[in-house]
């Protein structure tokens, strides 16, 4: 199923839904109960996938104080925003960080605001509409992911300084720089790839796509 088809299907659901439609709800992709359920399910599955990706050690290269490498979990959050809308992207990031904090680190950091910061990446990417089969649309997806990551980085820095009381220099060196040096290549390169893989998966395995 392509993104266009996904949008059409959503519109059909809107017509049959008891929930009143508003432009904001339409933009957020939560116009009907079915859509809300679908967003929640996608977010939970996405959060579990996020946790799994976080468990896999990823290679990186240190260049001076900058690490270079890929963080697929960031691209996953952006991809889910692109595929299922801003709320799904936001929730995937938030729940994913919450889950990984609890399961991998046994604690909650920064009043869960770090999860919110990551969720903003998925939210911003989800605001746009993409045709995953189209190269230009994928370029747009990469750009939106980079913009979303910029907001995530800024939010993380603000949380670090004002909530965690981290030294400004530490925020710059150990939060901003790594998010950008690891995150930008990840979301620019991997997000369109993940989205295209999802599209291929839907086309290949879902009954509606076969019809």
């Amino acid at each position: 199923m392509t993104e266009t088809e996904v949008t059409e299907a959503s519109e059909t659901e809107v017509e049959s839904s008891e929930t009143p439609s508003t432009p904001i709800r339409e933009k957020l992709g939560i116009q009907s109960r079915n859509e809300i359920m679908s967003v929640i399910i996608v977010a939970v599955v996405g959060a579990i996938l996020y946790l799994i990706l976080e468990m896999v050690p990823m290679p990186y290269l240190g260049v001076s104080i900058i690490p270079l490498g890929l963080v697929p979990s960031l691209a996953l959050v952006a991809s889910i925003g692109a595929i299922r809308g801003p709320v799904a992207g936001l929730l995937t990031g938030y729940i994913g960080v919450l889950l990984s904090n609890l399961i991998l680190n046994g604690a909650i950091a920064a009043l869960t605001l770090d999860g919110f910061a990551l969720g903003v990446l998925g939210f911003i990417v989800g605001i746009g509409k993409y045709d995953i089969t189209n190269g230009r649309s994928l370029i747009k997806l990469s750009l939106m992911s980079a913009i979303g990551l910029g907001f995530t980085a800024l939010l993380t820095a603000v949380i670090g300084i004002f909530v965690e009381g981290v030294a400004t220099l530490a925020v710059i060196a150990f939060q901003l720089l790594p998010i950008l040096s690891l995150g930008l290549p990840s979301v620019i390169l991997l997000t369109p790839l993940f989205a295209r893989l999802w599209c291929w998966f839907v086309e290949r395995f879902t009954p509606s796509a076969e019809e």
Partner: peptide, 29 residues
């Protein structure tokens, strides 16, 4: 549309291969 026909995806593949090759280090033993 296959990846081979999508120049952007094809470019991403090439860049990814190079990038991963350059940064493939520091994995735990």
């Amino acid at each position: 549309m296959s990846i081979r026909k999508n120049k952007y995806l094809a470019s991403i593949f090439v860049i990814l291969m190079i990038f991963v090759g350059l940064t493939m280090s520091n994995l735990p033993g």
